[in-house]
């Protein structure tokens, strides 16, 4: 039986910190603030119509990713400067993440979702609005690009 959605407060408390850090990683602190509010207002608009609540965490990342990609399309270059690596990232990824800002935006989101937040490829695909195969490719080509930059 599908799980019913919990009161929005529960969902918000469970995801807000992680989503905020994710948006800061993708957009930098300043743009992340607007994107944060936009993400949760979008979530709230859709929340009453959710059919099930089986993977709300991935759903939150999906909304945040779409908001962030829109934001980056609008953003001026100086807003695109990457943040320093966040402390909760995996060590290997954290060493390279400061370079992630130079990746094309979908690759960047794919890499951060996969290695920063452990999301499954199916969920990354949903977040990017692509196929699972395309999500895999975006992630691995992003990682290849990062490694090249990392050793260069």
């Amino acid at each position: 039986m599908p799980t019913a959605a919990p009161p929005f407060e529960r969902f918000y408390e469970a995801t807000r910190e992680e989503i905020y850090r994710y948006l800061v990683r993708l957009l930098g602190r300043q743009s992340a603030e607007d994107a944060f509010q936009e993400t949760f207002l979008k979530a709230l608009r859709a929340y009453g119509r959710l059919v099930h609540a089986d993977n709300l965490r991935a759903w939150a990342f999906t909304i945040a990713t779409r908001v962030a990609l829109d934001e980056r399309r609008r953003a001026r270059p100086e807003h695109d400067l990457p943040e320093l690596a966040a402390s909760d990232a995996r060590p290997a990824f954290a060493e390279l993440e400061h370079l992630a800002g130079t990746l094309p935006r979908t690759e960047r989101a794919a890499v951060v979702l996969r290695y920063g937040y452990d999301l499954a490829y199916a969920d990354i695909a949903a977040a990017l609005g692509s196929s699972e195969e395309a999500a895999r490719q975006a992630t691995s080509s992003g990682v290849r690009r990062l490694r090249k930059k990392g050793v260069a």
Partner: peptide, 15 residues
């Protein structure tokens, strides 16, 4: 890095 309280408040008011 944690969510700033002002940002949390701002979302709750906007909602």
């Amino acid at each position: 890095m944690t969510l700033p309280i002002e940002l949390d408040d701002r979302f709750r008011s906007a909602a």
